[in-house]
Amino acid sequence: MTIKVKLKNISKVYDLYEKKSDKFLSLFRVRNKEHRQFMALNNVSFEVSQGETVGLIGLNGSGKSTLSNILGGVLQPSDGSIEVNGKSSLIAISAGLNNNLSGLDNIELKCIMHGLSKEEIEKVRDDIIEFADIGDYIYQPVKDYSSGMKSRLGFAISVHTDPDILIIDEALSVGDSTFTQKCLKKMREFQDKGKTIFFVSHSAEQMRTFCEKIVWLHYGKVKEIGESNEVVKHYQEFTKWFNNLSNEEKKEYKSKQLSEQNVVGFRRNENKQEMDKYEWLKNSLVLIPLAIMGLLMVLN
């Protein structure tokens, strides 16, 4: 089986600035002092083959959304390498619809943005409308939609743009159970077609029935990867254990874990570009003619 997604030592670091000006200065690589950083993901590595369905599980703030954003190509990792073979599509609750346009226009707009041709849009439009199943509201501007309708439309569009890799970030939790059933059915279809799916959810039941493999993220680190029943069982044991702790113990546990995520001076290699020595020379080479012409202009 071909490897679809390969993550190697992925880390994502967020800088925590005390002042706005620090953030601004960091753009110019002016390191006045080491600032605090937060490790949202710490050394995450795994491989996913074609046709696998992988669940991401973990507490709030454990890095599930960050990881799915990295998988979807929305965010760049601070360190490590990611290889994605195929077109990935991220479905999140905030589906990125234009509020002023009608549902119908939004379908067209999103499809254009996904690079579909006019004929292709013509073909999928009716499928999307039928799948979203929001009746005559499809002709109304999206701002009049309920949150359920929005997620229905968003999901319907994303699903029909024919992605190779589908990343579903808790998008199913908004719709009612009839819609969830429909989505799960659609996802089964994708599974049968041999597509790769990443699935983020808090529902242990959905996870168990749906995923073959589960990645348990725990405060930015991978705690366990493995066969779904087993990982879900361990995760449930953990939450049970955690819930039985007293409030103080809970607090202590959390702050201990969080303090491990706070680091200082992480060397990121994102947009590390070889600043070649001649860079300044090149830049000034471009500026010289401008200066000469400007001078000519002024002195006439």
């Binding site: 234009n98 002023n100 346009l101 226009d105 067209e108 707009l109 254009i112 943005m113 690079g115 501007p141």
Partner: peptide
């Protein structure tokens, strides 16, 4: 092509209110 199509959409959203 994409630029043109999306520019048309921008226009559609404006002045609707």
């Amino acid at each position: 092509q994409l630029i043109y199509q999306l520019a048309v959409f921008e226009l559609r959203g404006q002045h609707q209110n």
